[in-house]
Amino acid sequence: MTSTLAKTDTDISTRSSRPVIVLRNITKTYMMGSVAVDVLRGISMTIDHGDFVAIMGASGSGKSTTMHIIGCLDIPSRGYYWLDGIDVRTLTDTDLSMIRNRKIGFVFQSFNLIPRLSVLANVELPLTYRGVNKQERRERSTAALAATGMSHRLTHMPTELSGGEQQRVAVARAIVTNPSIILADEPTGNLASHQSAEVMNIFSQLNAEGRTIVLVTHEKDIAEYAKRIIRIQDGVVVEDIRSLPVNAMPPRLESNPSTTYHTVLSPGSYKTDTLNSGLGAYTPPSESIHRRPK
């Protein structure tokens, strides 16, 4: 693997004050036929480790394009993007796929599960591309699905699940590689309100574990789960409001001891996790994210 990415899985508790996402004057121009459309017209933002950020904006404001650029799914026309101190422009295609695999977990509005693969196989896929062996893949995927409350649907096909369940599978797929950043593009856009609350609570738990969450939404009550709200309009940032400090607990975290999301990938509380009692042989991966001291 490439040397610049060799240390992507460092324990983030040791560097919690460093910015993880830095955008400077990002522009993006699409050619619609012969007409150039400026979708982004100079976006700049800095997001620190452990933050929970909601990017808001009307449809067509450029919030999704910003998200795609942050997620290395798209490349900017101009401007600089440092991800964990790495200038993304210098990376090769293979490096970018490795970043998408290891550093970033992406959750889409339309779930984007592969329809022909079972729930478990879908969640295993990022680990497959990473070259993890079959047994470890199975253990980690089962644990991730347990963390999002989907243990009872391992062999189901995505089409057999409700929207909320599909999104929880998608979240499990996003966290199975233990990424430090989770990007969610309108994750509740296709969900009923009670399903939205479940999924948002999972994000809150993941943030409480120390992961950086960036969320794109146009719903105000979804944005209220975040510690900071950035508004984008016509391709520029128009407002940036922080309601809680970076290292605070997420505002609407429901501390429910019977739920398991925050414990599964945390070594300290793992053994008390009753839902995972069948996984006695499971050893949490070395790059596990530790709960930050409060």
Binding site: L73, T94, M98, R100, N101, N112, I114, P126, Y129, T177
Partner: peptide, 15 residues
């Protein structure tokens, strides 16, 4: 679309 999903979760060009 499936190719897009696979690439988004980290499949390289060669994969």
């Amino acid at each position: 679309r499936e190719i897009g999903i696979r690439k988004a979760i980290g499949a390289s060009k060669s994969a």
